[in-house]
């Protein structure tokens, strides 16, 4: 596969993933993940080069394995998940600067910049969540699936709102 077509395939996956997250199609979003072990995490806010430290060494904002990610998605869909119910945040994921694409057999890693906007009806203004993502994809049964999504935000303090109750 040429680099251009791989890049295109990655971009298609990222755009689909962004749309599912922004549309709150949580089950479909979860369906984009690979079978087996996975990792979805948001790194520490106040630690430069936080991506060099694991969630066992420094206080991440969140770090989900398969069980917890599935439970997160179940929780987010419930009317009793008060932080996002009855009115949900409206989010918009933007990915740019796709780079450092590396292929190792069926595993593909890359880095991409991320800008997510988050709007809430009960909270004036728009929250901007800038950062980058280290993705690991795996090709399973011919399709690219997400194995790891490690997000590192350019924030010192989580503010307006001060919670991470959305899919980032």
């Amino acid at each position: 596969m040429s680099e251009a077509s791989l890049r295109q395939e990655i971009e298609q996956l990222l755009y689909l993933e962004a749309d599912y997250a922004d549309d709150w199609q949580l089950t479909s979003w979860l369906g984009l993940w690979a079978e087996g072990e996975l990792l979805y995490e948001v790194g520490p806010l106040d630690t430069p080069r936080g991506d060099r430290l694991s969630h066992n060494q420094v206080l991440y904002l969140l770090s989900d394995d398969r069980f917890r990610l599935e439970q997160r998605v179940i929780r987010m869909g419930k009317p009793t998940a008060h932080a996002e119910a009855p009115v949900r945040s409206q989010t918009r994921h933007n990915y740019t600067h796709l780079r450092n694409i590396a292929v190792d057999g069926d595993v593909i890693t890359f880095k991409v910049n991320m800008l997510v906007t988050r709007t809430r009806r009960d909270n004036e203004g728009v929250a901007i969540l800038p950062g980058y993502v280290l993705f690991t994809l795996a090709r399973q049964n011919g399709a690219l699936k997400i194995q790891r999504k490690r997000i590192f935000l350019d924030l010192w303090v989580l503010s307006n709102p001060g919670t991470m109750s959305i899919i980032l």
């Binding site: 969630h55 997160r72 932080a83």
Partner: peptide, 18 residues
Amino acid sequence: RMENILSFLGPGGFATPD
């Protein structure tokens, strides 16, 4: 400890946002 912290506590946990 670290896993347990993140599942309940903090702004990305299953409880604090509520």
